[in-house]
Amino acid sequence: MITPSFRPIAGHAVLVELATEISEEVADAIVSLDRAIQEAGIEGVRETTPALVNLLVIFDPLVTDHAQVGAAVSALLPLPEKGGAAVNTREVDVCYEDGLCPDLDAVAQATGGSHESVISAHLAGDYRVGMYGFAPGFAYLAGVPEGAQVPRKPAPVRGIPAGSVMVAGPQCIVTTVKMPTGWSIIGRSPTQIMLSDPDKPFLFDVGDRVQFRRISRDDYERAVS
């Protein structure tokens, strides 16, 4: 069983640490604990940010304090065993055709494979939303197989369009806004990640599974037109 530690931050937050190393078990525990905190409606808790090995709890100092928040979170333990809540699987379409995959050549070279071997590897991955960060809707999807893994570029490239499917190491991101990035772009997706609905702002929740599906250039053009 995972026992969290609590680190007080300023006068209005607590970092709940579940581990120092990333693992599937820790990721599951963070999703369960985050869900439990939200469902418990702990008095004074304003917002939580789940990440890879810990989660941040921001609270209203006029209502509660670090110790009370820590005690309320501890009271939610032990967490329900895995399988307590359904895991969603989200499908994301990707077009890997010319003009939409500027770094596919370089990734093929770096992995000693071909366009097709990189694409197959990318499609074969079992992805999980580890956390969000960097920019609105940038979900870090862990699970890129070795055949599509490359290190970050030495310097970021500007103006990478929204919808880019990019990889760095074992992580993949489908971008939502135009950004500079040092990640390698291997395709483009027409799937809307940013829903802009206040009740469900983005397609993924942390902990969701993601499956990529290959589409043709025609399908891509139809989807974005």
């Binding site: 304003r46 789940p50 702002p201």
Partner: peptide, 9 residues
Amino acid sequence: RFGALRYGV
């Protein structure tokens, strides 16, 4: 804009 840190906002 509060409540969307979890989505990178």
